[in-house]
């Protein structure tokens, strides 16, 4: 028989016991701190007979005007967010949330310049909803695509999937926010067509309102399903297109003259 201390089997039991104990403690301890978030009923109140959308007339979208962006930022408390101390300005520009942005384009062949606002396109078949593992990214019965911030785990797969770069991740602690647009570090968010305004009886979005107030009327909001709505009438009378129509996502936001 060889030397006892050289025998692995004798000391093995002790080693296994201690390791299992340590691993068990490491697993259980954080679990005690975790609380399960409950999600409310997602479609409560949304009317399945409606499909909200926008029509953007790029001919009316004025160069240099950012009224829609400013209005959105105020409406959803985005302007309350401050650049974290010590963060580089350029990086802050890439990290801060943007629900709507102005884009200026020039046709390669003709040189024609187009201005347009770009936001979540509220697809009928949203890729962000398809890929979300927890179902936090969801589409309401009335066609609005939004994020349930109680179940968003911050995996950012929806941002990988969105063809419009319409989503933003909250990179820092949120100090100030509005009651109507709750926001939290580590979650994803995007344009929700001012859902809570509609739920409380409003008939327009902040961006469309601001555009109209400037006298441009480039953004028209309404119900795509209602043939009598101004939106449906405008869509049936003029040619419009979807951005990345090749993906056949049947977007709720349409553009003319682009």
């Amino acid at each position: 028989m060889s030397n006892q201390t050289e025998q692995p089997d004798l000391e093995r039991r002790g080693f296994i016991g201690k390791t299992v104990l340590a691993a068990g403690a490491a697993v259980v301890a954080p679990g005690v701190l975790v609380s399960v978030a409950g999600a409310g009923a997602k479609t409560d109140g949304a009317d399945p007979g409606k499909r909200y959308g926008l029509l953007i007339d790029t001919n009316k979208c004025a160069e240099g005007c950012t009224a829609c962006v400013t209005a959105c930022n105020e409406e959803h408390g985005i302007d309350l967010m401050q650049k974290p101390e010590g963060l580089d300005e350029a990086q802050w520009q890439q990290q801060k949330p943007q629900w709507i942005r102005k884009v200026k384009l020039q046709d390669n062949l003709t040189g024609r310049v187009t201005n347009l606002p770009l936001m979540c396109q509220h697809c009928e078949f949203p890729p962000c909803v398809d890929v979300c593992p927890t179902g936090a990214s969801f589409k309401r019965a009335d066609g609005i695509v939004m994020v349930d911030r109680h179940t968003c785990i911050g995996c950012r797969y929806c941002m990988m999937a969105c063809p419009y770069k319409a989503r933003s991740f909250i990179h820092q602690e949120v100090e100030h926010q509005t009651v109507s647009a709750p926001r939290g570090k580590g979650c994803v968010e995007s344009c929700n067509l001012c859902a809570y305004r509609l739920d409380y009886g409003a008939d327009n979005t902040a961006c469309a309102e601001a555009c109209a107030a400037q006298g441009h009327n480039a953004i028209l909001f309404g119900d795509l399903n209602d043939p009598n709505s101004e939106l449906a009438q405008a869509l049936s009378s003029a040619a419009s297109r979807q951005i990345r129509g090749d993906l056949e996502l049947n977007t709720g936001v349409r553009y003319t003259n682009v």
Binding site: A37, V129, C132, P133, T151, C152, G154, C155, G186
Partner: peptide
């Protein structure tokens, strides 16, 4: 690296079966 690693339990209990992430879990 998740934005909310504390919500891992949500990922383990709330599923969207159209997501390949869910299948990967």
């Amino acid at each position: 690296d998740l934005g909310r690693p504390d919500r891992l339990v949500v990922a383990m209990t709330t599923y969207n079966f159209k997501s390949i992430f869910t299948w990967n879990i």
